[in-house]
Simulated scan of single mutants.
Amino acid sequence: MRPTEIRDLFDRELREHARPDGPGVRVERSGPLVRQVGGPDDWNGVVWSEPGLDAEGADAAIAAQIAHWDGLGHEAFEWKLYSHDGPADLGERLRAAGFAAEPSETLLVAPVESLTGLPGAHPPAGVELRAVTDAAGVELVALAHERAFGTDAGRLRHQVLTRLEQAPDDFVALVASADGEPVGSARMELYPGTAFAGLWGGGTVAEWRGRGVYRALVAYRARIAAERGYRYVQVDATDMSAPILRRLGFTALGTTTPYVYRLAR
Protein backbone atom coordinates (compact mmCIF):
# COMPACT_ATOMS: atom_id res chain seq x y z
CA MET A 1 0.00 0.00 0.00
CA ARG A 2 1.13 3.56 -0.70
CA PRO A 3 1.69 5.84 2.31
CA THR A 4 -1.47 7.83 1.53
CA GLU A 5 -3.48 4.60 1.43
CA ILE A 6 -2.05 3.50 4.78
CA ARG A 7 -2.85 6.94 6.21
CA ASP A 8 -6.44 6.70 4.99
CA LEU A 9 -6.72 3.25 6.57
CA PHE A 10 -5.28 4.61 9.82
CA ASP A 11 -7.75 7.50 9.82
CA ARG A 12 -10.68 5.19 9.22
CA GLU A 13 -9.77 2.39 11.63
CA LEU A 14 -8.10 4.19 14.53
CA ARG A 15 -9.63 7.65 14.41
CA GLU A 16 -13.10 7.70 12.84
CA HIS A 17 -13.89 4.30 14.36
CA ALA A 18 -11.74 4.72 17.46
CA ARG A 19 -12.09 2.36 20.39
CA PRO A 20 -11.87 3.37 24.06
CA ASP A 21 -8.26 3.17 25.24
CA GLY A 22 -9.17 1.79 28.64
CA PRO A 23 -11.89 0.68 31.05
CA GLY A 24 -14.40 3.30 32.10
CA VAL A 25 -13.95 5.50 29.04
CA ARG A 26 -16.21 5.85 26.03
CA VAL A 27 -15.93 7.01 22.44
CA GLU A 28 -18.67 9.31 21.16
CA ARG A 29 -19.66 10.88 17.86
CA SER A 30 -20.24 14.61 18.35
CA GLY A 31 -21.46 16.17 15.10
CA PRO A 32 -18.45 16.21 12.73
CA LEU A 33 -16.09 14.89 15.44
CA VAL A 34 -15.19 11.73 17.32
CA ARG A 35 -14.03 12.18 20.91
CA GLN A 36 -12.98 10.05 23.87
CA VAL A 37 -14.44 10.88 27.26
CA GLY A 38 -13.30 9.43 30.58
CA GLY A 39 -12.45 10.37 34.12
CA PRO A 40 -9.95 13.05 35.10
CA ASP A 41 -7.05 10.56 35.08
CA ASP A 42 -7.94 9.22 31.63
CA TRP A 43 -7.05 10.74 28.26
CA ASN A 44 -9.88 13.04 27.17
CA GLY A 45 -10.03 14.63 23.75
CA VAL A 46 -10.96 14.85 20.10
CA VAL A 47 -9.46 12.11 17.93
CA TRP A 48 -11.03 12.71 14.49
CA SER A 49 -12.83 15.35 12.45
CA GLU A 50 -14.65 14.98 9.15
CA PRO A 51 -12.42 15.59 6.10
CA GLY A 52 -14.86 18.19 4.75
CA LEU A 53 -14.97 20.26 7.94
CA ASP A 54 -15.10 23.94 6.93
CA ALA A 55 -14.27 27.11 8.86
CA GLU A 56 -17.80 27.73 10.14
CA GLY A 57 -18.23 24.10 11.16
CA ALA A 58 -14.84 24.07 12.86
CA ASP A 59 -15.61 27.11 15.01
CA ALA A 60 -18.96 25.62 16.07
CA ALA A 61 -17.35 22.27 16.87
CA ILE A 62 -14.60 23.92 18.93
CA ALA A 63 -17.14 25.86 21.00
CA ALA A 64 -19.23 22.71 21.52
CA GLN A 65 -16.26 20.72 22.83
CA ILE A 66 -15.23 23.43 25.27
CA ALA A 67 -18.79 23.54 26.62
CA HIS A 68 -18.94 19.75 26.82
CA TRP A 69 -15.83 19.27 28.94
CA ASP A 70 -16.59 22.34 31.01
CA GLY A 71 -19.90 20.73 31.88
CA LEU A 72 -18.12 17.54 32.96
CA GLY A 73 -15.95 19.48 35.38
CA HIS A 74 -12.65 18.36 33.85
CA GLU A 75 -9.54 20.49 34.19
CA ALA A 76 -8.36 19.98 30.60
CA PHE A 77 -8.88 18.12 27.34
CA GLU A 78 -6.96 17.71 24.11
CA TRP A 79 -7.70 18.14 20.43
CA LYS A 80 -5.37 15.78 18.58
CA LEU A 81 -4.76 17.58 15.30
CA TYR A 82 -3.12 15.84 12.34
CA SER A 83 -1.34 17.76 9.59
CA HIS A 84 -3.80 16.55 6.94
CA ASP A 85 -6.91 17.58 8.91
CA GLY A 86 -9.04 20.43 7.62
CA PRO A 87 -9.67 23.25 7.41
CA ALA A 88 -6.08 24.28 6.72
CA ASP A 89 -6.15 26.88 9.49
CA LEU A 90 -7.69 24.62 12.15
CA GLY A 91 -4.64 24.98 14.38
CA GLU A 92 -4.95 28.77 14.28
CA ARG A 93 -8.65 28.52 15.12
CA LEU A 94 -7.87 26.29 18.10
CA ARG A 95 -5.28 28.76 19.38
CA ALA A 96 -7.72 31.64 18.93
CA ALA A 97 -10.24 29.71 21.07
CA GLY A 98 -7.73 29.33 23.92
CA PHE A 99 -5.98 26.04 23.13
CA ALA A 100 -2.21 25.77 23.62
CA ALA A 101 -0.16 23.75 21.15
CA GLU A 102 2.28 21.23 22.60
CA PRO A 103 5.28 19.90 20.64
CA SER A 104 4.34 18.17 17.40
CA GLU A 105 5.18 14.52 16.79
CA THR A 106 5.70 12.55 13.60
CA LEU A 107 3.14 9.89 12.68
CA LEU A 108 5.26 6.89 11.66
CA VAL A 109 4.15 3.45 10.41
CA ALA A 110 6.03 0.27 9.53
CA PRO A 111 4.95 -3.19 8.35
CA VAL A 112 5.18 -5.56 11.31
CA GLU A 113 7.04 -8.18 9.29
CA SER A 114 9.90 -5.75 8.61
CA LEU A 115 10.61 -5.33 12.34
CA THR A 116 10.47 -8.84 13.73
CA GLY A 117 13.95 -9.78 12.55
CA LEU A 118 15.80 -6.50 13.02
CA PRO A 119 19.59 -6.81 13.30
CA GLY A 120 20.63 -6.16 16.88
CA ALA A 121 17.03 -6.56 18.05
CA HIS A 122 18.03 -8.32 21.25
CA PRO A 123 18.77 -6.26 24.38
CA PRO A 124 22.40 -5.49 25.16
CA ALA A 125 24.35 -7.64 27.60
CA GLY A 126 23.17 -7.19 31.15
CA VAL A 127 19.70 -5.95 30.20
CA GLU A 128 16.55 -8.03 30.61
CA LEU A 129 13.24 -7.26 28.88
CA ARG A 130 10.04 -8.58 30.40
CA ALA A 131 6.33 -8.03 30.13
CA VAL A 132 4.71 -6.40 33.15
CA THR A 133 1.75 -8.15 34.75
CA ASP A 134 1.42 -6.80 38.29
CA ALA A 135 1.57 -3.66 40.45
CA ALA A 136 5.27 -4.14 41.23
CA GLY A 137 6.04 -4.19 37.51
CA VAL A 138 3.93 -1.08 36.94
CA GLU A 139 6.05 0.76 39.51
CA LEU A 140 9.16 -0.15 37.51
CA VAL A 141 7.54 1.10 34.29
CA ALA A 142 6.61 4.37 35.99
CA LEU A 143 10.09 4.82 37.46
CA ALA A 144 11.76 4.17 34.10
CA HIS A 145 9.38 6.64 32.44
CA GLU A 146 10.17 9.35 35.00
CA ARG A 147 13.91 8.81 34.64
CA ALA A 148 13.78 8.74 30.83
CA PHE A 149 11.46 11.71 30.27
CA GLY A 150 11.84 13.77 33.44
CA THR A 151 8.08 13.96 33.96
CA ASP A 152 5.75 12.76 36.71
CA ALA A 153 4.29 9.32 35.95
CA GLY A 154 1.29 9.47 38.29
CA ARG A 155 -1.29 9.39 35.52
CA LEU A 156 0.66 6.76 33.58
CA ARG A 157 0.83 4.57 36.69
CA HIS A 158 -2.97 4.74 37.06
CA GLN A 159 -3.63 4.01 33.39
CA VAL A 160 -1.24 1.05 33.09
CA LEU A 161 -2.41 -0.57 36.32
CA THR A 162 -6.06 -0.15 35.31
CA ARG A 163 -5.45 -1.72 31.91
CA LEU A 164 -3.57 -4.69 33.33
CA GLU A 165 -6.23 -5.32 35.96
CA GLN A 166 -9.34 -4.82 33.84
CA ALA A 167 -8.47 -5.24 30.15
CA PRO A 168 -5.09 -6.95 29.73
CA ASP A 169 -5.72 -8.80 26.45
CA ASP A 170 -5.18 -5.79 24.17
CA PHE A 171 -2.38 -4.09 26.06
CA VAL A 172 1.32 -4.79 26.63
CA ALA A 173 3.67 -3.05 29.06
CA LEU A 174 7.40 -3.76 29.07
CA VAL A 175 10.27 -2.88 31.35
CA ALA A 176 13.99 -3.17 30.63
CA SER A 177 16.12 -3.76 33.72
CA ALA A 178 19.85 -3.87 34.45
CA ASP A 179 21.04 -5.15 37.84
CA GLY A 180 17.48 -4.89 39.09
CA GLU A 181 17.13 -1.23 38.13
CA PRO A 182 14.70 -0.09 35.39
CA VAL A 183 16.55 1.45 32.44
CA GLY A 184 13.72 1.61 29.91
CA SER A 185 10.02 0.95 29.40
CA ALA A 186 7.45 0.84 26.63
CA ARG A 187 3.79 0.05 25.97
CA MET A 188 1.73 -1.28 23.09
CA GLU A 189 -1.97 -0.87 22.32
CA LEU A 190 -3.55 -3.64 20.26
CA TYR A 191 -6.64 -2.63 18.30
CA PRO A 192 -8.70 -5.76 17.52
CA GLY A 193 -10.36 -5.82 14.13
CA THR A 194 -7.86 -3.34 12.64
CA ALA A 195 -4.55 -3.63 10.82
CA PHE A 196 -2.70 -1.61 13.48
CA ALA A 197 -0.96 -1.91 16.80
CA GLY A 198 0.25 1.28 18.48
CA LEU A 199 3.67 1.70 20.10
CA TRP A 200 3.66 4.16 22.98
CA GLY A 201 5.97 5.51 25.65
CA GLY A 202 9.22 3.91 24.54
CA GLY A 203 12.05 5.53 26.47
CA THR A 204 15.51 4.79 27.84
CA VAL A 205 17.28 6.45 30.77
CA ALA A 206 20.09 8.74 29.65
CA GLU A 207 23.05 6.57 30.67
CA TRP A 208 21.73 3.61 28.66
CA ARG A 209 20.93 5.42 25.42
CA GLY A 210 22.73 4.40 22.25
CA ARG A 211 23.18 0.78 23.37
CA GLY A 212 20.19 -0.79 21.64
CA VAL A 213 17.61 -0.82 24.44
CA TYR A 214 15.11 1.24 22.46
CA ARG A 215 15.55 -0.92 19.33
CA ALA A 216 15.01 -4.05 21.42
CA LEU A 217 11.80 -2.63 22.89
CA VAL A 218 10.50 -1.93 19.37
CA ALA A 219 11.37 -5.42 18.10
CA TYR A 220 9.88 -7.16 21.15
CA ARG A 221 6.55 -5.42 20.65
CA ALA A 222 6.61 -6.04 16.89
CA ARG A 223 6.98 -9.76 17.49
CA ILE A 224 3.92 -9.75 19.73
CA ALA A 225 1.96 -7.76 17.13
CA ALA A 226 2.97 -10.26 14.44
CA GLU A 227 1.87 -13.19 16.61
CA ARG A 228 -1.53 -11.50 17.04
CA GLY A 229 -1.95 -11.00 13.28
CA TYR A 230 -1.45 -7.22 12.95
CA ARG A 231 -0.04 -5.80 9.71
CA TYR A 232 1.37 -2.45 10.86
CA VAL A 233 2.75 -0.76 13.94
CA GLN A 234 2.21 2.95 14.42
CA VAL A 235 4.10 5.50 16.53
CA ASP A 236 3.60 9.16 17.39
CA ALA A 237 7.32 9.89 17.54
CA THR A 238 9.15 12.73 19.27
CA ASP A 239 12.10 14.43 17.63
CA MET A 240 14.34 12.19 19.73
CA SER A 241 12.84 8.87 18.66
CA ALA A 242 11.81 9.69 15.07
CA PRO A 243 15.35 9.41 13.58
CA ILE A 244 15.85 6.02 15.25
CA LEU A 245 12.52 4.73 13.94
CA ARG A 246 13.23 5.99 10.42
CA ARG A 247 16.49 4.01 10.45
CA LEU A 248 14.48 0.94 11.48
CA GLY A 249 12.28 1.33 8.39
CA PHE A 250 9.34 3.41 9.56
CA THR A 251 7.67 5.77 7.06
CA ALA A 252 6.30 9.20 7.96
CA LEU A 253 2.62 9.78 7.18
CA GLY A 254 2.48 13.33 8.57
CA THR A 255 2.58 15.04 11.94
CA THR A 256 0.24 15.27 14.90
CA THR A 257 0.02 18.14 17.36
CA PRO A 258 -1.73 18.05 20.73
CA TYR A 259 -3.79 21.20 21.32
CA VAL A 260 -4.70 21.38 25.01
CA TYR A 261 -7.50 23.44 26.48
CA ARG A 262 -7.31 24.13 30.23
CA LEU A 263 -10.64 25.00 31.77
CA ALA A 264 -10.90 27.70 34.41
CA ARG A 265 -11.83 26.29 37.82
Rank of each mutant, 00 (worst) to 15 (best):
2 R>D: 14
5 E>A: 09
6 I>N: 04
24 G>Y: 09
26 R>I: 13
27 V>W: 09
30 S>D: 14
34 V>E: 02
37 V>G: 02
40 P>E: 03
47 V>F: 01
53 L>I: 14
59 D>H: 10
61 A>F: 11
62 I>W: 14
68 H>A: 11
77 F>P: 10
79 W>Q: 07
83 S>I: 06
89 D>G: 09
91 G>H: 10
97 A>Q: 03
97 A>G: 02
101 A>C: 01
101 A>V: 00
121 A>E: 15
122 H>Q: 15
123 P>G: 14
124 P>R: 11
125 A>G: 14
130 R>M: 13
134 D>Y: 00
136 A>V: 11
136 A>D: 14
143 L>D: 15
145 H>G: 12
147 R>N: 13
148 A>Y: 02
149 F>D: 15
152 D>R: 13
160 V>R: 13
161 L>C: 04
163 R>E: 07
164 L>A: 00
165 E>M: 03
170 D>G: 14
171 F>I: 06
176 A>K: 06
177 S>Y: 02
177 S>D: 07
182 P>T: 08
193 G>T: 10
195 A>P: 03
196 F>K: 11
199 L>H: 14
200 W>E: 09
201 G>P: 10
208 W>Y: 12
212 G>E: 12
216 A>S: 15
226 A>W: 03
230 Y>L: 05
231 R>L: 10
233 V>K: 01
236 D>K: 00
239 D>T: 05
240 M>H: 15
241 S>D: 06
241 S>C: 05
251 T>Y: 04
261 Y>V: 04
262 R>I: 03
